[in-house]
Structures are given as structure tokens and as C-alpha cells.
Design a protein around this nucleic acid. Sequence first.
DNA 1: TATACATTTTCTGTATACAGGATTCAATGG
DNA 2: CCATTGAATCCTGTATACAGAAAATGTATA
Lengths: 234, 234
Amino acid sequence: MPAAKEEDFLPLRDSVYNKLRQAILTGELPAGERLMEVHLGDKLGVSRTPIREAIRMLELEGLVTMIPRKGAMVSQITEKNMSDVLEVRRALDILCVQLACERITPEGIDELKKARDAFEKAVDTNDSRRIAQADVEFHNVIIRATGNDRLISLEDSLSLPMYRYRYEYIKDSSGHGNLVKEHRGIVNAIEKRNAEAAAEAAGEHIDNQRRSIIRQIRLDREEESMNALYGKRR
Amino acid sequence: MPAAKEEDFLPLRDSVYNKLRQAILTGELPAGERLMEVHLGDKLGVSRTPIREAIRMLELEGLVTMIPRKGAMVSQITEKNMSDVLEVRRALDILCVQLACERITPEGIDELKKARDAFEKAVDTNDSRRIAQADVEFHNVIIRATGNDRLISLEDSLSLPMYRYRYEYIKDSSGHGNLVKEHRGIVNAIEKRNAEAAAEAAGEHIDNQRRSIIRQIRLDREEESMNALYGKRR
DNA sequence: TATACATTTTCTGTATACAGGATTCAATGG
DNA sequence: CCATTGAATCCTGTATACAGAAAATGTATA
């Protein structure tokens, strides 16, 4: 046998879950959109059963809201909501770098530096999509270095809701070199295993992110109310 | 109409979810137990559909583990696992008290003091069940005072896995008055809105909890291997 | 006795059927 | 012209049916 190729079986519910998740995060399914089971079913070519199970999962993650006997809808993103998530993420991101300082292996440090360099290269290209991807990978290296599985999965699900604002955030920050500077600071602190400095750098990093995202939400809301004024509500 | 009595409709899936959750946390469904859909179905008098949806939710919470095409089982509690959860909870508990210092209202402080007193009274009775309940309520007051909905629901789901050890932990600590002392420290710090002191007190509180739980897990494991030695495996 | 293979059983995964609550819209009465 | 009611429709909640994978069991052969 060439390699471990077993267990590549993916239940439909998971495939549906991923697709819906993606659609919500990219805005293809906008906030407030109703998720009707039959409709989604024939759009995705599956029956209601996997759809329902996927919705149950999205519900527990907070991406969709259920009203009994009424149905599911894409959760509204409010400033409060996002602010709550960011508050939690701030604490967990700091925990991540602190743990990374204790536990990262030499290979982990190499990996981290590679991720940092890849990120800087991506910034040079000015390709938002690539920058975003490199940014995610950078953070993933740190998160994995904690070795804490629960933390890994929590970070994953708490990052989700803000993916919609990622591009704007990157456009905001990458031009000024802020992101690059912040990443360097984090890497340096972790390499020296200086938990305090790492915590500070990570805290600043997410505070900047918060500012950018909150500003974006306010812009969106403004635009929305303008549209409403001009009767552009669909 | 006498009062708002609407929306007391609870889908079966939620009822099943609660029952299974309870059964897992009380140990009625021990770790490793397979959750078979038809079996649970006729035990609870419902069809497979609500069972499956409840299992999807428990899975995302980490209480059950799925193996594709094999089925679901109650998640094994390992020391690593619990340690991961406690590590995250430590960060979040500290965040809770810090936020509470900023945001708690005068009424919140009253409520907190009441919860503290109720807890002390419960300790006097030496009734573990009652102590546990008062302890949960005490923490809930603090958590609610943060006003952060995401934090509230996360704390809820992160507390779950350790409910199994709660009684032992309380027997460990309440005798020595540790718990009472720690709670007092937390209340004092929050009342003075001294975030730093509150953080320290909360950190110590959960560190003690951790010690007790880890010790308990090791005891359990020892006992288990003894049973295995004597052929008491079922 | 042990091993390999066929068979049967037992579950999960997925689709579909059926019942009842909610919503809509039009007809009717004020 | 507006409010009310009732039927038609839509959609969720729940049950059930069917197909295929995995495990268990049994059987034959070395």
C-alpha cells in the first residue's frame, strides 16, 4: 500500500457544513438570509437530513440562529456581537503566545519564522487574498505550538465570524507595514521565550484588528441605512 | 392573557440533547459507551432523527466523539484533555473577573454578595449537592456581570466536562475553608473594582480546582488499572 | 487449532413520507 | 376602507424506509 489513504470518507453533513460555512463567511449568504431546508437541499443536491445536521452544527457555532418551527437564518453580525467575540479572542490569543513561549520546539520556531517570511513576501505582492492566507497560516503555527487541542478548536471557531472583514482589515493595515511589524514583534518574543513581551505584542495585534473591524462594521451599517433611505431595500 | 407563556415549545432534539448531556455528566453514560441511535431512540421514546441531531450538538461540544460509519461514543476523559480545558478556562475565568470589575452594576454587587453568603451557608450544611449548586450560582453571577454573551456560553460549555469531578473537588476543598476564602477574595476585589487583585484571586481559585481534578483523574485511572489487574473488566 | 473466506447481522448514512404549526392572502362582514 | 376569518400553502419537526459499510458469526480447509 502506497500511503495511509484510508478514512477519506466525508459524510454529506460535513460537506454541507463546510459549504454553508464558506457561503456565510464570504457573504454569499448574507446575514438575515433564511436557510430553507428543501431549497438548500436541491441546490446542493442532497436531501434534508444532512442539511439539518449541518445547520445544527452551525447553530452551536453561532453562525446561524434558529427560531423554533420557523427555521434557521444567518446570524446578524452586530457590533456588540463582534465585540464580544474579540474580547474573548484577545484573552485566548494572549494565552496562545504565552503557551507557545513555554512549549514551542526548535522546529516550531523554524516554522514560525518561515511563516513570518512568507507573510512578508505576500505583503510585497499586495495580493489581499494571498496576504490573508499567509496571515492565517502564521497564526496557525502559533496556535498549534500550544499543543492545546481545545484551544486550537476554539480559536478556529472564534476566528470565523470575522473572516468577512479580513480583506478590509488587511487593506487597512498592510499598507502601513503595521502587520509586518507586529508579526515580527511576536516572533521575536516567542523566540526569546519572553512570555510577557509576547503577550503584549499579541494584545496590541488584536487591538488593532478590533479597531479596524469595528470601524468596518460601522461603515457597513451607515451604508445600509443610506440604502434604506433611498429605498434600495430589496 | 395571564402572562407571556408563548414559545414554551421545545423540540425533541433539545430535550434529547439535555437528557444525554445530563446522563454523560452524571456518569450514567460512562466514557467510552457507544451511543446507538435506535437503542437510545426507543429508550427515550423518539425516533432516530432527534437523536442524531442531539449527537451532532454534543459532538461539537466535545462530549461525544464520532467515528464515521462507526458511530458515536462518550468521549474519553483524559488528563491531557481536561488539562487543556482547564488551561483555557483559567484564561477565561480571569477575563471574567476583570470584565466584571469594569462592568458590574451596584445591583450586580449585591447579587454577588448574596451568592457568596448563600455559598457559605451551603458549606455549613456540609451537603455536597447544595454546595455545588451554590458554587455554580456564584460563578454564574460573575459571568453574567461581564455582559459578554459569547463568554457566557463558552464558560458554560467549558464547565461541563468537569462536572463529573465537582463533588470530589468540593469534598477536597470545602472542608479546609479554602473555597470560602477564595470566594471572599474574589468578591472583595470585584467590589473594589481592583481588576489585578481579582485576576490573581480567580487564577488561584482555578489552579486549586485544577490540582484537585487532576488528582482525582489519576486516582480514577489507578483504580481502573487495579480492576483490570484483578480481571474485573466487564 | 488456526486461518481464510463467505454469510449474516447490525449500524450508520441518506432519502423520503407524513403531520401539524405558521404565514399569507383573499373573501366576507362591519 | 379596514378588520377578521378561514382556507391554502409552505416549512419545520418527526418518523420511517432503504442502501451500503463494518463487524460478527459461522464454515471449511490446511
